[in-house]
């Protein structure tokens, strides 16, 4: 129910606070999405979309924390080992 999916903004239309919308690409599937709640979102940004409305811009810098946390706990050596 609380499913939200990341997609990339292709275009933005409308300046009206309620109706600001855009075309968002979900790896190939393009949909119209209401962008009223992400007033700072720009073309090229990834947004998290839930039932047709964008809820947040995905923070690219924070997106790596899942891997950084492992590094911090000293797992990186083993990660590389496993991969090689």
């Amino acid at each position: 129910m609380c499913l939200a999916v990341p997609g990339r903004i292709l275009s933005i239309e409308g300046t009206d606070a309620l109706l600001r919308s855009g075309r968002v690409d979900f790896s190939g599937v393009v949909k119209d999405v209401n962008l009223a709640f992400v007033p700072d979102a720009a073309i090229g940004d990834y947004v998290l979309v839930h039932v047709g409305l964008a809820l947040q811009v995905i923070d690219e810098a924070e997106a790596r924390q899942v891997f950084e946390y492992l590094t911090m706990m000293g797992e990186v050596g083993e990660l590389v080992e496993v991969k090689s």
Binding site: A4, F37, H50, L55
Partner: peptide
């Protein structure tokens, strides 16, 4: 839940 509330309010 709160996730869907903004959409329904909109």
């Amino acid at each position: 839940f709160e996730t869907t509330a903004p959409a329904n309010a909109m």
